[in-house]
Design a protein around this nucleic acid. Structure first.
Length: 494
DNA sequence: GTACCTTTGAAGAGC
DNA sequence: GCTCTTCAAAGGTAC
């Protein structure tokens, strides 16, 4: 995890990551910051993963009736005991099923039960499912499943209608005897129903081929995509009635290798199994629409910055939920595509080559910090050091913000202010302080942070508004403040 | 049409 | 074991 230090106040936000103006009140250490994940040590955060990873390894042997991960995570996330993925579906033995968010989402399961009826009021807990179901800007209020089942398709990801028939051969007592109670619909039929009761013990890799009727389930998995992720909806194999052909490249590694010699463009067009989403991706998927609605931003790069900050601000327990979800995603993915490896996709065709020039403001700055062993948030490495200038005035007439600067800042401003404009919004203090920036006194600890640009520039302050070098937050913190009903922010278009 | 941006995390390759 | 690279999602942007 990149953040290994404790953040004090709000000045320690991540440098170099955003290009926006941030104004916020320094009201001392907030309670939520005390539990912020940014305060987590590397060991602490890794422990979150270790908890799930250790469980994952143990699960390969046997998954007891009470999942060990729930017990382990009890100390951090008591809500786990409630089964944060409460699916309306149940196993044949009546035990509730649970699916990773994206998997259940994409295979067409209905949204999870959510306690919170207002998706915008407060950040819903992870167990509440995916707000974008109601908020997806493209699909409208009721977004259909990305991978809807064809008529009659069985809703279980790994348990096709035929498979369910297999499952129906076994009475609940059979399941009880197996002592398996996994939240995975996939793991249950594979590990217990099939493995223990079939005359042959199929390895997971054989399952898709052995049970030919389940191929549509495999193909319904969201990890299989066609040309690109943006075209994944509606991509269908013309030769079959399925979205994708059954013979996936990862099912035959030798074919994958042979395909490497072919044209990469052809490789790109081939359906492939996508990587399972990690914890942050799951979080982004869930929270993106909310951030878009709150911040009126559409650019994913900016949204992702916000989400990245929110991710760090997320509590340990909340993050643990997503780590657990991600672990389940990986596990389910592993069961569905046992022969798949990330190497398969990595060799597909070099989808993109990141810029290697030194002016890259994101990765290169991170690399610089790593190379020079600098704190990620409070220090600048030499190549990224801010070229400080002086802002001569900062004015706010309620509809616009003006930032005048001397020549030095002007030179910075080319790189600094342009992203701010492109960002579209700048958060200003509330009416009490925003009406006049000069009225913002030190007693209110109002700061304006001009965020680092790709050149790592930031500027000092004037007129009572402190403009600090570096720092982080930008729109992320702005949007975080917007969550506070007592302090509605003022957004001003530049 | 497609790479890029931007985030974090996982995983593989290479040293 | 460490570092580096790529890929997952997303959609606007730039070429």
């Amino acid at each position: 995890m990149p953040h290994t230090h404790s953040r004090h106040g709000s000045s320690g936000d991540d440098l170099c990551s955003t290009d926006e103006v941030k104004i916020f009140k320094d009201e001392g250490d907030r309670e939520d910051e005390k539990i912020s994940s940014e305060n987590l040590l590397v060991e602490e955060k890794s422990s979150l993963i270790d908890l799930t990873e250790s469980e994952e390894k143990g699960q390969k042997i046997a998954r007891p009736d009470h999942s060990p991960v729930f017990n382990k995570l009890d100390t951090h996330a008591p809500s786990f005991n409630m089964g944060y993925l409460v699916s309306p579906y149940s196993y044949a033995n009546g035990t509730p099923s649970g699916l990773p968010v994206t998997m259940a989402n994409k295979i067409g399961l209905p949204p999870f039960f959510c306690h919170n009826a207002d998706p915008l009021s407060t950040p819903p807990p992870a167990h509440c499912g995916i707000p974008p179901y109601q908020l997806d800007p493209k699909m409208g209020l009721t977004r259909p499943a990305l991978y809807p089942f064809a008529g009659g398709q069985y809703p279980y990801p790994m348990l096709s209608s035929d498979m369910s028939q297999v499952a129906s051969w076994h009475t609940p007592s059979v399941y009880s005897a197996s002592s398996f109670r996994t939240p995975y619909p996939s793991s249950l039929p594979i590990n217990t129903t099939i493995a223990s009761d079939f005359p042959f013990r199929f390895s997971p890799s054989l399952l898709p081929s052995v049970h030919a009727t389940s191929h549509h389930v495999i193909n319904a998995h969201a990890a299989i995509v066609g040309v690109s992720s943006k075209q994944e909806c509606g991509v269908q194999d013309p030769t079959t009635n399925n979205r994708y052909p059954r013979n996936l490249e990862t099912k035959n590694p030798s074919n994958t290798q042979s395909n490497d010699s072919k044209d990469t463009s052809n490789d790109k067009k081939k359906p492939h199994i996508k990587k399972p989403l990690n914890a942050f991706m799951l979080y982004m998927k869930e929270m993106r629409a909310k951030v878009v609605a709150e911040c009126t931003l559409k650019e994913s790069a900016a949204i992702n910055q916000i989400l990245g900050r929110r991710w760090h601000a997320l509590g340990r327990e909340e993050q643990a939920k997503y780590y657990e979800l991600a672990r389940r995603e990986r596990q389910l993915h592993m069961q569905m595509y046992p022969d798949w490896s990330s190497r398969t996709n990595a060799s597909r065709g070099k989808k993109r080559k990141r810029k290697q020039d030194t002016n890259d403001g994101g990765n290169n700055m991170k690399k610089c910090r790593a190379r020079f062993g600098l704190d990620q948030q409070n220090q600048w490495c030499k190549p990224c050091s801010p070229n400080l200038g002086v802002i001569s005035s900062v004015s706010n007439n309620g509809s616009s913000i003006g930032i005048n600067s001397n020549a030095a800042v002007n030179s910075i401003g080319v790189g600094m202010l342009a992203p701010i404009v492109s960002g579209g919004t700048v958060m200003l203090p509330n009416s009490s302080s925003s009406s006049s920036s000069s009225s913002s006194t030190s007693s209110s600890h109002t700061h304006v942070q001009l965020m680092a640009t790709s050149n790592g520039n930031a500027v000092p302050s004037l007129n009572g508004i402190t403009v600090t070098a570096g720092g982080g937050g930008g729109a992320a913190s702005a949007c975080s403040q917007q969550l506070s009903p007592q302090a509605p922010p003022t957004y001003v278009n530049l």
